[in-house]
Nucleic acid binder design. Structure first.
Length: 926
RNA sequence: GGGCUAGUAGCUCAGCUGGCUAGAGCACACGACUGAUAAUCGUGAGGUCGGAGGUUCAAGUCCUCCCUGGCCCA
């Protein structure tokens, strides 16, 4: 007879190989068929909610790793919160306006654009954005991300645009909006103002010139000795084209300055820089004629080198000794520091440059000239008037346009601003930052420092694709109608058809009937042509989405984005919300790092080190991508390499195989009838339950703290160390050979059922596909989807420290036994460990334990016999247990054909001469 | 240049408030099994904890400087 047929061997249809790229789409289809999404939306309704508000990705291009990382993290959180019993509606969104889309459409249209109206062009942009929203939506869903994909929020829908306009009106009502002239980054090529976020810094070669400005006021009394020769202040600049806009020279009040005598004149320089400068200028014969404090010259005047006007001497802290001369050329219309100090001294914010990067026609000497020709022309003029001391070239970091990559300029224009000081916005925002939980905690410092130092928020964009700044101007006197009531009236009109009406209708149609200019009484108006910064769009999502959607609420529980968003969405959302509601739009903010390549470099097309999500999905499946997100500590930047993917793929197989083996052993199990009372479980099974609950506890806490990599390692180690290499390996003998009705068999199966059930649940937020696959094969009545189920409760009555401690001791002994078995194997004394009998001479501290467990030791060691004896003929010392001595001998008796253990009882039964007594009994029982 | 941040075995991670011959899993090498089999089990070999100083009886853990990265700014 073939005794193999009498064994309880595992049996399952659950495939060992996942073939995820094929299986995942099938599961997606399955979910669609059972209307999972609809059920999820209703799941836990009425219970406490947890709102993770989605930050909108930009609707342009296919998904990259950053998108995948971000959305998978969100998905894991939403799923785990739902399984913890929270009501977790998740509404994904997209950022649809803005320059990048506009430029893409621009490019696509080519010359056709010129014949198009602004409204028509906007329709094209809308279509373009829509296509990418659809594409990205599908790509996100392929990753197994659950959410309200049927009703996402788009910043370009009429209702959203109406809210955007209303939020602007609210800020106007609070007096936060003002029109100012201010230098901003300006791209002459794109003809637009650029936000900080739209500027890139890159190496650029510029002229480097030293220019002298003759001093024209009376000398301070202390320096009357300098009256003999001409006195000049020397400035250094890399932007000669700004010299025509020069209105002053700045000195640092903390620094000491010197007047150097050379070539019959005095040159004023910072004391700490003059030697280097003289060297640069090639002047060897010089001497310091005077040393003085900058204050002496505060508010005195130099003369512009070639215009008939003065250049004011001022004091400013921004002047440093890092470069230049210590005397800083100041053009308030062309630099941030210049602007600030210029304001302080009452200088004009003067800008002689037009939108296209040319000097205005009325500029003396250079009117109409393009800036790219200006440097040379200005230098020539300076040289001609004898003001140019030195000219060379330097390579330095210079701002460039993020779209066209061309160098940009700093230039004052009329713009709308949200004031950081009006209504105390800055202070309030800083206070709100303190109330938010920042994870990791350094996020607080990061955004705090930014808000503390940032300038007013320039919200104007001279572009087409966006929400218009809904302000009208009196045609006659130019007065701006920045009136909240009027703006609300306009916003209401957006509700129906979107902000396109602003571009389609005349001002008279848009404004409330009977509107007259409050300044002059005129009743004809023109419309502002600037649109809003896209950061404003997404910054109002708390109002447009969280407040307006019934299932959501504001402030949200969590915002989760990359750490760059401290200056992006976290920032704009905070300012907008504090500016209109005096509170932050979020309770906590979680950030993740950036995806880098195997060497820790950013992925870029030009570097050729990009790994696309699509590539991974095709080769490994989305599940591996999800596992990667989980396995890595995302709070820092995270690396991605082929090796990592291979490792994760292996880890996935280990987890999958463990589940498969458990399923195989649960073949025919019915939890209703096959459950075993806790107190009837065998000790080893109780140990497994203790470990399982330990795991459940650890995982629950890690989900709470968003420390997913802890989950990955805990689960993987549990599967590998506790289950596969120990518990399940040892269990085989009992499982396979025991009679089906025996408590030994039933206890093992009941335990395995608990383990797999819990494992599947805690795995679901991460391995959403595989967990479902297991779920569908798990015995018992259960929810239609694991994603509708709850996490397992930690049953602390199973937690047994002493039991685990004893097993740890036994495990140490087992390790020593394995080591010796391995040696015997190397000596060809045995193959299977069951061929061995182990003799142990235990030290005092192990005596009790090993005596207590003597009967179980063969099972734990997976050998046929164990003897505790002092009588060893050829003992070997254990490596890590002092005093423990071991000896391996061939097992007594013959090999049982059924259970493969060696036993002296084999051959004693006439009916079954090739099997052991235990197996004979088992057959009789079965 | 500034703000924030990171650097422990090939990979992914542990190592709490300083006290071990620095741990785990995977990968790798070698072996066993063929009743988890494109699986499973065992053994083994991998680290001057980015570098250099310092504090301390004692430092991967504290301090200083430096190097190499990342994000955001200038």
């Amino acid at each position: 007879m073939d005794y193999k047929d009498t064994l309880n061997l595992p049996k399952t249809d659950f495939p060992m190989r996942a073939n995820l790229p094929k299986r995942e789409p099938e599961l997606l289809k399955h979910w669609q068929q059972i209307d999972l999404n609809e059920q999820l939306e209703k799941n836990n309704q009425g219970k406490e909610s947890f709102i993770l508000h989605d930050g909108p990705p930009y609707a342009n291009g296919h998904l990259h790793m950053g998108h995948a990382l971000n959305k998978i993290l969100k998905d894991i959180i939403v799923k785990s919160k739902r399984m913890q019993g929270f009501f977790t509606p998740y509404v994904p969104g997209w950022d649809c306006h803005g320059l990048p889309i506009e430029l893409m459409v621009d490019k696509k249209l080519g010359k056709k654009k010129r014949e198009m109206s602004k409204a028509d062009f906007r329709r094209q942009c809308r279509e373009y954005a829509k296509v990418w929203v659809q594409t990205q939506s599908e790509e996100f869903q392929r990753l197994g991300i659950f959410g309200d994909w049927e009703n996402p929020y788009l910043t370009m829908t009429p209702d959203y645009e109406a809210t955007t306009a209303r939020e602007l009106a609210r800020l106007v009502e609070r007096g936060s909006l003002y029109k100012g002239k201010k230098p901003i980054h300006w791209c002459s090529s794109c003809v637009t103002a650029l936000a900080e976020a739209e500027v890139e810094y890159d190496e650029h070669v510029s002229p480097s010139i030293y220019v002298k400005f003759p001093y024209v006021d009376e000398l301070p009394a202390e320096l009357s000795e300098l009256s003999e020769k001409p006195l000049n202040f020397v400035i250094w600049t890399t932007t000669p084209w700004t010299i025509p806009a020069n209105l002053g020279i700045c000195l640092n009040p903390e620094l000491t300055y010197v007047a150097v005598e050379a070539k019959g004149e005095y040159l004023v320089l910072a004391e700490g820089l003059y030697e280097g400068v003289m060297q640069t200028l090639g002047i060897e014969d010089y001497s310091v004629a005077a040393t003085f404090a900058a204050e002496l010259f505060d508010n005195k005047n130099c003369r512009h080198p070639f215009y008939d006007r003065n250049s004011l001497l001022m004091l400013g802290d921004h002047v440093t000794l890092e470069a230049g001369t210590g005397c800083v050329h100041t053009a308030p219309g062309h630099g941030q520091d210049d602007y600030v100090v210029g304001l302080k001294y009452g200088l004009e914010i003067y800008n002689p440059v037009d939108d296209y990067g040319r000097y205005r026609q009325d500029l003396e000497l250079f009117g109409g000239m393009k800036l790219k020709d200006a440097n040379a022309a200005v230098n020539a003029k300076l040289s001609e008037v004898g003001a140019l001391l030195h000219e060379t070239q330097v390579s330095h970091s210079y701002p460039h346009c993020w779209r066209c990559k061309k160098p940009i300029i700093f230039r004052a224009t009329e713009q709308w601003f949200i004031s950081m000081e009006e209504n105390n916005l800055r202070q309030k925002a800083l206070q709100e930052i303190e109330k938010v939980e920042w994870i990791p905690s350094w996020g607080r410092n990061r955004i705090f420092n930014m808000v503390e130092a940032r300038p007013d928020w320039c919200i104007s964009r001279q572009r087409s694709w966006g929400v218009p700044i809904t302000i009208a101007y009196c045609e006659k006197c130019g007065e701006a109608l920045n009136d909240g009531k009027i703006m609300h009236h306009i916003a209401d009109q957006f509700e129906a058809t979107g902000s396109d009406v602003w571009f389609e209708k005349e001002a008279s149609e848009l404004l409330p009937p009977g509107t007259v200019c409050p300044a002059c009484g005129h009743d004809k108006f023109t419309k502002e042509s600037d649109i809003l910064d896209v950061w404003f769009d997404s910054g109002v999502s708390h109002a447009a989405v969280c407040e307006l959607r019934e299932e959501l609420q504001s402030p949200a529980d969590l915002y989760l984005e990359g750490s760059d968003q401290h200056r992006g969405w976290f920032h704009s959302s905070l300012l907008e919300s504090v500016g209109t509601r005096d509170r932050a739009p979020y309770k906590s903010v979680l950030t993740h790092g950036f995806v880098l390549d195997k060497d820790g470099r950013p992925m870029s097309k030009s570097m050729g080190n990009v790994i696309a999500p699509e590539e991974i999905i095709k080769k490994y499946g989305a599940e591996i991508l999800r596992l990667w997100v989980t396995a890595t500590d995302y709070r820092d930047d995270i690396r991605l390499s082929q090796e990592t993917l291979q490792r994760l793929s292996d880890a996935y197989r280990r987890i999958r195989n463990t589940a498969r083996y458990l399923l195989g052993n649960l073949n025919g199990f019915d939890p209703v009838v096959d459950t075993v009372a806790d107190q009837d479980l065998l000790e080893m099974d109780r140990w497994a339950m203790s470990r399982l609950n330990r795991l459940t506890q650890k995982v629950a806490s890690a989900y709470d703290k968003y420390e997913f990599h802890v989950i990955y390692h805990a689960i993987h180690n549990f599967c590998t160390i506790d289950l596969s290499a120990f518990y399940l390996d040892i269990l085989k003998d009992r499982l396979y050979t025991s009679p089906k009705q025996s408590i030994a068999y039933r206890s093992a199966r009941a335990t395995m059922y608990q383990i797999l059930d819990a494992l599947t649940r805690i795995l679901a937020p991460v391995l959403s596909f595989t967990a479902e696959e297991i779920w569908l094969d798990l015995p018992g009545q259960r929810e239609a989807s694991v994603h509708l189920a709850d996490f397992p409760q930690v049953n602390s009555s199973y937690l047994d420290d002493q039991l685990e401690e004893r097993y740890e001791q036994l495990h140490k002994v087992r390790l020593e036994v394995s080591r010796q078995l391995e040696k015997a194997r190397a000596d060809k004394q045995l193959g299977q460990s069951l061929e061995a009998k182990v003799l142990l001479d235990a030290p005092e501290n192990y005596q009790q334990l090993l005596t207590d467990y003597l009967d179980a030791l063969p099972t734990y060691f997976i050998v046929s016999q164990v003897e505790l004896t002092k009588n060893l003929s050829a003992a070997v010392d254990a490596e890590n247990i002092p005093g423990l001595r071991l000896q391996i001998l061939p097992a007594d008796g013959e090999k049982c054909e059924r259970c493969w253990n060696y036993a002296t009882s084999v051959g004693q039964n006439n009916e079954h001469p090739t099997i052991c007594a235990r197996c004979t009994d088992a057959l009789a029982a079965g």
